[in-house]
Design a protein around this nucleic acid. Sequence first.
DNA 1: ATCTGTCGGATACAACGTACACATCAGCGT
DNA 2: ACGCTGATGTGTACGTTGTATCCGACAGAT
Lengths: 250, 250
Amino acid sequence: MPAQQAPAGDTPAGDDRPPVSLWERLARPAPAPRTTLTPQRIAEAAVAVADAEGLEAVTMRRLAAELGVAPMAAYRYVSGKDELIELMVDFVYGRLPLGTPAEGWRDTMRALALNLRAMHLAHPWTVRAATPFSLSPHQLAVPEHAFAALAEHGLDADTTMAVFRTVTGYVHGSVTTEVTLNALRRERGWSDGDQTRAGLAPRMSWLMDTGRYPNYQRYLHTATRKDDPDWQFETGLDCVLDGIAAHFAL
Amino acid sequence: MPAQQAPAGDTPAGDDRPPVSLWERLARPAPAPRTTLTPQRIAEAAVAVADAEGLEAVTMRRLAAELGVAPMAAYRYVSGKDELIELMVDFVYGRLPLGTPAEGWRDTMRALALNLRAMHLAHPWTVRAATPFSLSPHQLAVPEHAFAALAEHGLDADTTMAVFRTVTGYVHGSVTTEVTLNALRRERGWSDGDQTRAGLAPRMSWLMDTGRYPNYQRYLHTATRKDDPDWQFETGLDCVLDGIAAHFAL
DNA sequence: ATCTGTCGGATACAACGTACACATCAGCGT
DNA sequence: ACGCTGATGTGTACGTTGTATCCGACAGAT
C-alpha cells in the first residue's frame, strides 16, 4: 500500500478535487527516511525567503536554489505553489505562542491579538497569504485556544464564534493596513514617519490641493500620534474588547 | 510642455521613483480626444473581468482582448499592472454610496461599514487588491466622509482616526474571511452551507479525529447561526460600535 | 502641406508555474 | 550477496505572464 502518490495530493481515480489534504498526507510516516528534502526544510527555506524579500520573491525555482535542489524537487511534497504557501502559513502559525488560556477571556483574547499582530509584523506576507478556512492544523489551534478561554462564561456557540471573529477580524484588518504601510516604507527606503510623509508629499499635496478632503487635511495637520502604531492598534483593540464586554454583559 | 510622457508615470530625468501619480496624470485634460481607449473604459473592462472570473483572470492580454486592442495598448494609461489594479480599485470605490453624513456618528459609521461590506461582496477581489495608502481619490473620500461625521463630537484628530481605523479594520478583516469562504464555495460549486460542510468534511473530520480541537468540535456541533453571515457581521459590528461609544464616552 | 506629439500595433524576451519522462538510491525478501 | 520495487530528485520543455522597445499612423496647429 503506497503511503504517497505522485503527483502529491491526487487520488488514483480521476475525480476533479483531491479529497486527501496536504496535512493528512504529511501526517503519514515517511516510508523512506530521506533527509535531503523534508516539509520542514521546505517551509523554513520558503519562509526565510519571504521574510527577507517578500512573498513575490518566493519562486519554485528560487526555493529549489535555496535548498540546493532541482526546480521540480519540491513538487514531491506540495502539489503546487498554493500548497507551498499553505505550508508556509501553517509553519508560521506553529510558532505562535498560545500558552495557557487561564486568565479570563479578556486577557486571553488581548494576548492573542497582540501575538497575532506580532506574528504578522514579523512575517508581513502572512496578511495576504493567510486565508481563513485553509483548515491547517496550526491555524485551527487559534480558534481552539480562544474557544477554550471563552467557554467558561456561559456563552453559546454562536456568540463565542462572534466574539472570536470580531477580535480576529479587527486584528487582521488593522494589521493589514499597518503591514502595507511598512512594506511601502521599506521598498522606498523611508525609515521614519517624517521621511514617509516627505516621500508621500507630492501625491498627497496634489490630492489635498483639490480641496475635496478638508476633514482629512485637518487630521493631517493636528494629529500627534501618527507615528505610534502600537498606540493605534491597542486603542482600537481595547475599543473592541470594551464593546464585547458591553454587548454580551461579560 | 507635454501633458503626458512615455512610458506613463516617468519623468524625463532618470530618478528611480516617478513622483507624479496615476491620479495626477489622469486629471490633466487629454490633449487628443481619442475615444478608442480611455481610463474609464479600461477600468470598466478590467473590473468586469475580475467580477466575473476573479482577479487572476485579469491579464494585460485578456484586458486588451476585451477592449479589442493590442496587448500593449493599455500601457499608455497605466505604467504597469499594479497601476491597473489601483485604477480598478478606485473605480469600484467611486461607486460606493456615501451620501450625506448628517445622522450622528454611529449611524454614519454603521452605514459606511454596511456599504463597504456590500461593495466587497459585490467585487470580492477588492479585499485582496485594495491596499490602504494607495491614496486614490475615491478611496480617500471614505475617511473624509467619516471624519466629517466624527468631527462634530469634540474628538481630537488621533481619536477620530482611531475610531475610523477600528471600524474599517474590523470591516476589512471580517469581510476578508467571508469573501474567502464565498470564493471557495463558488469554485467548488457548493451552493449552501450544508453542501459546503459536506465538501469540507473529509479534511475537517481528519483534523477533528486528531482530538486536538475539542472546543472547536463542540462549536461545530452546537452552533445554529453558521449560515447567517449577515447576523455574524452585524453582531461584530455592533460590538465594535458599542465599544467605541463606551471607550470614548460618546 | 508640413511638423509635432500622441496613440495603438508588432515583435520579442525573460521569468514564471508545472507536466512529463528519466535516473538514482534505500531497503526488502530471498 | 543480489536484484526487485517504489520513493526521491533531475532534466527538459511548454504555455503563459508582464513588459521593453521600436514602429507606423493619425490629429491639430502652423
